[in-house]
Amino acid sequence: MKDDGGLRVSGMRVRYGDLTAVDGVSFTIGKGEILGLVGESGSGKSSVGRALAGLVPYEGDVTGAGPTQMVFQDPYGSLNPRLRIGDAVAEGLGRGGTRAVRKAEGLRLLGLVGLDEGVAGRYPRELSGGQRQRVALARALGARPSLLIADEITSALDVSVQGAVLNLVRELRGRLGLSVLFVSHDLAVVRYVCDAVAVMREGRIVESGTVEHVTEHPGHEYTKALLDAVPRLR
């Protein structure tokens, strides 16, 4: 993790009343890098993402975040059921430009995430979970973010379609030079998608490093326990 103008977070704290969910977390995400934030429920990993997205207040220094967008876990809750897909995606485009320009840009974004133009006129209920997550990605990309926060974006999806969304994240990073904070509980998924990984427990980062290093030579007992717990195909 080098300093190349990417995101730098130091000493981040997030509190909800008396509860300290994130307790002094520091990390960097280089430009075009994907950092996986791994941990179990209550580790504070989602709070880090929400803080960076501006959804919850935090203390500490964040530099180089740039425009930030977020994609959520639940593909059924992240799209307005009354809005056509085309309109949902156009939401991120602001209200500048003519209708035609916005429409064309919307279609381009749908193409970018591998959906065909016909989807624009449909409602969310007509789409599968995997397709909805692509729409959510397209909508976020419309705002031209430099940092994308992906909060458990595949954990509600079936395995057979999860792969397509993961491939898409990797591809978009490559194509758009996007920095991504990939929040997940699944080490196998994180290992596949991310360049670097930070393991969180009880609001703190207990170990971080490149994905190869952390998954092959875990230094912390907790990381080892997490790796051991990954169910393996016989």
Binding site: L55, Q69, F72, Q73, D74, G77, L79, G92, A143
Partner: peptide, 9 residues
């Protein structure tokens, strides 16, 4: 979530 997403946009 879609309202949060709209706010972020």
């Amino acid at each position: 979530d879609y309202v949060l997403a709209a706010r972020m946009l």
